[in-house]
């Protein structure tokens, strides 16, 4: 493989992962919150932990985006 093509594959891998990681961060956050609410606390404080962890998941998703932009701006 030539250098250019190798670089292309590396970028393809990194950028094609961004969208998926963004979505699944949100889903994982929501899933953790839902699990804590319904399985650990048995619905006593139902919507709160779900929403809190959903928010955390969204922040985690944006953080991966932010990390990537920082990586690009550093020129690595």
């Amino acid at each position: 493989m030539s250098d250019e093509r190798r670089e292309m594959f590396r970028q393809l891998a990194e950028y094609s992962q961004v969208g998926m990681t963004f979505v699944f961060s949100i889903l994982v956050g929501f899933g953790i919150g839902w699990f804590l609410d319904n399985k650990v606390f048995h619905g006593k404080i139902t919507p709160y932990l779900t929403f809190i962890f959903l928010g955390v998941g969204i922040v985690a998703g944006f953080r991966t985006l932010w990390e990537l932009t920082r990586k690009i701006s550093d020129g690595k």
């Binding site: 992962q17 998926m20 699944f24 889903l27 994982v28 955390v56 985690a60 991966t64």
Partner: peptide
């Protein structure tokens, strides 16, 4: 946040 994005890695890599 890191724990969540790490678990998301697990799912996104397999799902893709």
């Amino acid at each position: 946040l890191e724990i969540i994005s790490n678990l998301a890695r697990l799912i996104s890599l397999s799902m893709r």
